[in-house]
Design a binder for these strands. Structure first.
Length: 857
RNA sequence: GCGGGCGUGGCGGAAUCGGUAGACGCUGCGGACUUAAAAUCCGUUUCCCUCUGGGAGUGGGGGUUCAAGUCCCCCCGCCCGCACCA
């Protein structure tokens, strides 16, 4: 018998698809609606990983399925090619970032091709190419002209030994990852994009994103963080400036026991700069770096300025003015009033420094005098108390009243505040897109004239010295001022790599365009992306930046599309068990052999190995599987099928060798079953034979039902259910005994339907089997199989019969039976009789088509 | 710390609107075929019991309901994001 040759067959179809340009897409195809499927493009880190396999398999199922449904599908792929790892490779191995990056791209492109993905490779982009980034330089200049880009000071993590800015992930326990030196916060002048100007629009736009997961919309909503509050000034005793605070809880003003400012608040140095311990305190705050998580997780620390402030409503009441490490300069005014009873951070702070904790919001059912806080702040509902003119009011009433009183006193005003900050796009790095600006001593900041774009990166850079390679380059930055012609210097910062990923989906619409990033009509045709698929870790930043970027581009006349992604699907991660040897070192799963007693040993050394937690695959823990090895030994179809089979795509997936083998077995079985059928050479008619046996009718019903339901499953991303249904149909096929050619006709229909509905999941073997059946068209170009609705209507249903909610029997009844008849049938069941014996029937609940519940006492 | 999510057999998971918990796969066990093994095929696989039946059971505790994996409240555990990783 002929065995299925996976490697040969998969290569054969991959080259056929390439030769026929099967997935090269034209714009505006007559009579077809467009459908844009997009997966988040990869960073070319070296080789593809299982997370990529999952992401691109999901996208491929959608793309092939929508094509079969008759859409004009575009499914592009490219490379998010700028970024830190390329520079790290340069430092560690001496390889040039460009050389390293392009070599990785070449490897990964071949790997993606070997997966049989239906990409339109004619649209491929690499963001590190000047052909790509020249256009975003132009976009930046347009943002600048339209007042959407500006410069301001902001804080970075500074490594004093390496003389370089550190990313947050490069700060480990407050120290630089390579130098080990404590990081400092340093202020630099940097470029920002005014995403805050679109805060309301981005927030309101979320309501129209029905195709997005609720959780992602909620996260973006919280990130934008719109809040109504009060901004007002506190008078500082014996000092001629006021301190301005922002609060979302003006109602709790009578519970205030201190006022706090951020360590980098301009007043901090002025008020306390000459005090003992100030420098040490500031240093301690700086050691936390700039990461918000690190700052908020740190123990609450304060420094008493010695100054006091006057309470706005209580004559003679003064509160201490602290500098506190948990107050963020970036939010509000960088100053707060602390209400320990009703804010957890303030509570911890007050506990530590012995400040008053005075409850002013009393929950319902508690007495204002008796209400005591246990060990944490109370932030729930309640009525005001201990608060002079606010006593007895609801929180919202009290907020408005305090705001209007403050406004009357001219001390401040109600204010809408956003948590979102403007997007800092400057990076002090080499491997990024140069920011097309020039600094002139006389003219200030001047844009590079458009006819001088692109500003390209110099190739001869050194990573030997500390600091930014662009700034260190001997000649690159020296240029002439475009306005006055005198000597001037180029901006040596490059863009944040989120800049590139904020418009790549628009570039795909017109990837070959050398004049501009994309032609408006092409973007307006293809965009928005109909289905975007990627990791949930991008729920906020990338997705929010891209939404902003399209609005900014739209404001500059590039396109009419403001929302780039109509529907979003966020996939879960891929996890794998971890292994350690006796010395505690991580071991690759590939080097582990499971023994008969369930224990593990090292494949080459024979040493005992212990199995650890099942966690996200990561190189550092070595719990990685190389997709290349999977494809080499099991084939792309098996890898794809396994990854779709087990877990629902939005949940984490546990990689399992056994599950992969199961998928591989299925593909071989499917091949064998089809070939056994063909070899039997049944004599078949073209149309459905009349008078099919009941078994054949049942098989036909399942066949058509399966095609129908898989369509719904794929539409809803229930890929694991779709696979389960395919296996059910397959099980029915192999359990089916054909006694004549009429039966064989039904069998062939079932097999062909199975092949067709599985094509988006396992495209190679299904194309092959379709051809083996004698079809001359290819499945990639074939429509989704039709469902004959008349075959799938059932006239009887199984009804559960319960007594007091407990299942006692199931009965088969006509679908449209009268309730009373269903009740009679249920009560006559022996098991029901037994259960109700000697009891009184209180009532009987009949849910048509589902359940009869007999309630007895 | 803040924001968001997830939790169902030995394992991954299924269960449309609150209506038969465990589809489908994996593993294990038993059997067939074989000189033998692999492959393949068949059966079986939530737990407990006094087993022609019955009881328990969806992270834990409480509640609503004729009926709860599903709704509500509290708690526990794990995961993602937190603005210079991508």
């Amino acid at each position: 018998m002929d065995r299925y040759n996976i490697q040969e067959t998969e290569k054969k179809w991959q080259s056929l698809w390439a030769d026929k340009e099967a997935f090269i897409t034209e714009d505006h195809v007559e009579g077809k609606e467009k459908y844009y499927v997009l997966e988040m493009f990869p960073y070319p880190s070296g080789k593809i990983h299982v997370g990529h396999v999952r992401n691109y398999t999901l996208g491929d199922v959608v793309a092939r399925f929508r094509k079969a449904e008759g859409y004009n599908v575009v499914h592009p792929m490219g490379w998010d090619a700028f970024g830190l790892p390329a520079e790290n490779a340069a430092i560690e191995n001496g390889r040039h970032p460009a050389e390293w990056t392009y070599a990785n791209i070449a490897v990964m492109r071949e790997q993606l091709k070997a997966m049989g993905l239906s990409f339109d490779w004619s649209r491929e982009v690499a963001t590190c190419s000047p052909d790509y980034y020249r256009h975003e330089q132009k976009m930046f200049l347009d943002f600048f002209k339209n007042d959407l880009a500006y410069r301001k000071e902001s804080v970075v993590n500074w490594d004093p030994v390496e003389n370089t800015v550190l990313a947050n992930e490069q700060v480990v326990d407050g120290c630089g990852w390579r130098s080990g030196a404590p990081v400092e916060r340093r202020t630099l002048n940097q470029w920002f994009l005014k995403i805050s100007a679109y805060a309301d629009e981005l927030l309101e736009g979320l309501d129209d994103l029905g195709g997005w997961p609720e959780k992602v919309r909620t996260m973006q909503d919280n990130w934008i963080g719109k809040s109504q509050g009060l901004q007002f000034k506190w008078d500082i005793n014996n000092y001629d400036e006021d301190v301005e605070v922002f609060t979302t809880r003006p109602d709790t003003i009578f519970g205030a026991s201190f006022v706090g400012i951020a360590p980098d608040h301009p007043l901090a140095e002025k008020l306390a700069g000459d005090k003992d311990g100030f420098a040490a305190f500031i240093q301690q705050c700086q050691a936390l770096g700039t990461s918000e998580a690190a700052i908020e997780k740190a123990d609450k620390l304060g420094f008493d300025t010695g100054y006091t402030v006057n309470h706005p409503f209580v004559e003679g009441l003064t509160l201490p003015l602290y500098i506190a490490n948990f107050i963020l300069m970036d939010y509000g005014t960088g100053a707060i009033f602390g209400v320990p009873a009703h804010d957890q951070r303030d509570f911890e702070f007050a506990t530590k420094y012995g400040l008053d904790i005075k409850p002013v919001v009393i929950p319902e059912g508690e007495d204002a005098q008796g209400f005591k806080l246990e060990d944490k702040a109370y932030s729930g509902e309640g009525k005001l108390a201990n608060s002079a003119f606010l006593d007895g009011l609801e929180i919202e009433e009290a907020k408005s009243l305090v705001i209007s009183k403050i406004e009357e006193k001219n001390m401040g005003q109600g204010k809408t505040q956003y948590r979102i900050r403007d997007w800092g796009v400057s990076r002090q790095r080499y491997w990024g897109c140069p920011i097309p600006m020039i600094h002139c001593a006389d003219c200030g900041v001047v844009a590079v004239p458009e006819d001088q774009l692109p500003v390209t990166l110099p190739e001869d850079v050194s990573f030997e010295q500390a600091g930014s390679p662009l700034a260190n380059h001997p000649t690159w930055k020296h240029t002439k001022c475009p306005e006055c012609g005198k000597d001037a210097q180029r901006e040596t910062d490059t863009f944040d790599t989120f800049f590139e990923s904020s418009w790549y989906f628009a570039r795909y619409c017109d990837a070959q365009n050398t004049n501009k990033g994309f032609a408006k009509d092409k973007a307006d045709y293809w965009l928005p992306v109909d289905q975007y698929i990627g990791g949930v870790e991008h729920a906020v930043m990338h997705l929010l930046y891209a939404r902003f970027f399209m609005r900014a581009l739209s404001a500059c006349g590039y396109t009419d599309v403001k929302e780039p992604f109509k529907a979003l699907y966020t996939q879960g991660m891929v996890n794998h068990a971890t292994y350690k040897d006796q010395s505690g070192k991580w071991v690759f799963p590939n080097d582990v052999i499971k023994q008969d007693d369930g224990s593990f040993k090292h494949a080459s050394t024979g040493e005992k190995v212990t199995e650890g937690a099942v966690i996200k695959m990561s190189k550092s823990k070595k719990n990685v599987i190389d997709p290349q090895e999977i494809m080499d030994s099991y084939g792309a179809d098996a890898a794809r099928l396994f990854i779709l089979s087990d877990s629902p795509p939005d949940r984490d997936l546990e990689w399992s060798e056994a599950g992969l083998e199961g998928a591989w077995r299925f593909i071989n079985k499917l091949h064998r079953t089809v070939h056994d059928f063909i070899a039997a050479r049944p004599n078949l008619t073209a149309d459905a034979p009349k008078g099919l046996s009941d078994d054949s009718k049942t098989l036909r019903a399942l066949t058509h039902k399966t095609a129908h339901e898989i369509k719904a499953d794929i539409t809803n991303f229930h890929m694991n259910k779709a696979v389960a249904r395919c296996r059910e149909l397959y099980n029915a096929i192999t359990g089916f005994k054909a006694v004549n050619d009429d039966d064989n006709w039904a069998l062939k229909e079932a097999l062909e339907y199975l092949i067709r509905v599985m094509n988006p999941m396992i495209p190679h073997v299904t194309e092959q089997l379709w051809q083996d059946f004698g079809h001359t068209e290819n499945l990639y170009d074939a429509p989704w199989p039709l469902t004959d609705e008349s075959l799938i209507v059932e006239d009887t249903v199984n009804i559960a019969v319960q007594v007091n909610g407990k299942l006692r029997a199931t009965i088969k009844l006509p679908k449209d039976i009268e309730k009373s008849d269903a009740e009679d049938s249920a009560l006559s069941e022996p098991a029901v009789q037994r259960a109700i014996e000697g009891k009184t029937i209180r009532k009987v609940i009949v849910v048509p088509g589902r359940v009869v519940n007999v309630v007895v006492a």
